[in-house]
Design a protein around this nucleic acid. Structure first.
Lengths: 151, 151
DNA sequence: CTGAATCCTAATAGATACTG
DNA sequence: CAGTATCTATTAGGATTCAG
């Protein structure tokens, strides 16, 4: 992201997107979508969160129901404790995940998708289906591209 | 991404995702989607590309039709020359963008979406619509979260 | 059990300068 | 015009340690 761009209020989180002064296409699937309003792009806010694999996987896991911290850690295998914490905090901050603490001993913390979080599941599934359907085509393209000698 | 995870063949590009040993939900919007097959996740391949804001914006721009390098650079304001080059190369490698060189003087290079690239537009639009609709809710959530004193 | 805090490194973006 | 090459600053993220 360009450090020269003025700081804009995107909610105060994460890296700031570049200014999107470009004119969005007025036809096609994006027509009528408030994509690049003035100086703040809604899409970027979402992609900055879903773009990182951890968030996507955590949300995905939670579509199956509430889970506790270590259960999530096991389910999203490979995630470090730190990244799970950070990811959950961001998702909670965005209102996608609700954190509930049961004051037992030992403490028990449960994470579940909010209604907002659940509403994201279907758009995610659409993208997931696309990825699943075209995965082979993409891999094939990469192979031929690499085989053509381009580093 | 965990460096401890074995290296898997994801096409040979980008950072490798963690192993996703988790069991995907069998119900909900993700049911029936080949999400976490064995050791390679198609979704990750796509999100690793679309996750970065530049790719998303470039694809978006190209939905409006073919564009030349500098036109893209102007349209996706704020992108550096280097990042535009890298982004276009990745998109080309994935078969989403076709690069055509016209051997004129000065050289003229045109970028357009492939059929595969265009097929991505609708899934992107779905996510975009969701982002657009819920942007306010997310921002509100962030505000109240931050107002609650959590740093 | 569920984190918070610290340290440290590898990757990445941006700026800059140069080229066919 | 359309890049490439190089350098540097920033950042993300893993490992580790400590705590309620």
């Amino acid at each position: 992201m360009p450090k020269t761009a003025e700081k804009l209020d995107f909610g105060g989180t994460g890296p700031l997107p570049p200014r999107t002064s470009g004119t969005a296409p007025v036809n096609g699937p994006f027509a009528g979508i408030d994509l690049l309003p003035a100086e703040q792009c809604p899409v970027r806010n979402v992609l900055d969160r879903l773009g990182d694999a951890w968030s996507y996987l955590v949300v995905l896991q939670l579509t199956g129901g509430a889970m506790r911290f270590n259960a999530l850690k096991r389910a999203v295998d490979g995630i470090s404790q730190r990244m799970l914490t950070v990811t959950l905090r961001n998702l909670e901050r965005d209102g996608l995940v609700q954190r509930t603490v049961f004051p037992t001993t030992p403490p028990q913390v449960e994470y579940r998708l909010t209604e907002l979080g659940h509403s994201l599941a279907e758009p995610m599934a659409v993208l997931t289906r696309w990825a699943s359907s075209h995965h082979d085509a993409i891999r094939a393209s990469r192979r031929s591209y690499d085989a053509a000698g381009k580093p």
